[in-house]
Amino acid sequence: MSAVAVNYDKLQKLGVEVISVSVDSQFVHKVWNDQELSKMAGKDIPFHMASDGPGNVGKIYGIYDEVAGVELRGRFIIDPDGIIQAMEVMTPPVGRHMDETIRQINAFQYVRAAKGAEVCPAGWEPGKKTLKPGPDLVANVWKVWNPLKDH
């Protein structure tokens, strides 16, 4: 969570609000912020740290581990219409990479702004080549996009 905190300004510039969720109480969230996270991030956690003791929220997102009684590492990108555009679910021992999350947000925002006229191929980052879907592109992607050069 400290990794999200240090990227919070970047996320804010992209118009993204952050909600973190675990089964811990809001009181434990406070102590975790005060005693550890703030020291790692160099500032207090700036986003909403939600508490989901019984796993009600985790269950509807399909990431609640009933046996362990904890949430799995589930990350969801939700657009301004409330539609889930991306999700990533991992078991606990491996952490997320915020650069990849931000890359995906950039891509989804680009596609949304283009209203579907352009799409972002594998590995797309701002400034890289997009594709314009249509009859002319069928079987011709190889002419305009190369996985070694453009990825």
Partner: peptide, 10 residues
Amino acid sequence: WVLLCFYPGD
């Protein structure tokens, strides 16, 4: 836009 992050625990 919302980034919703679940994690195993504090």
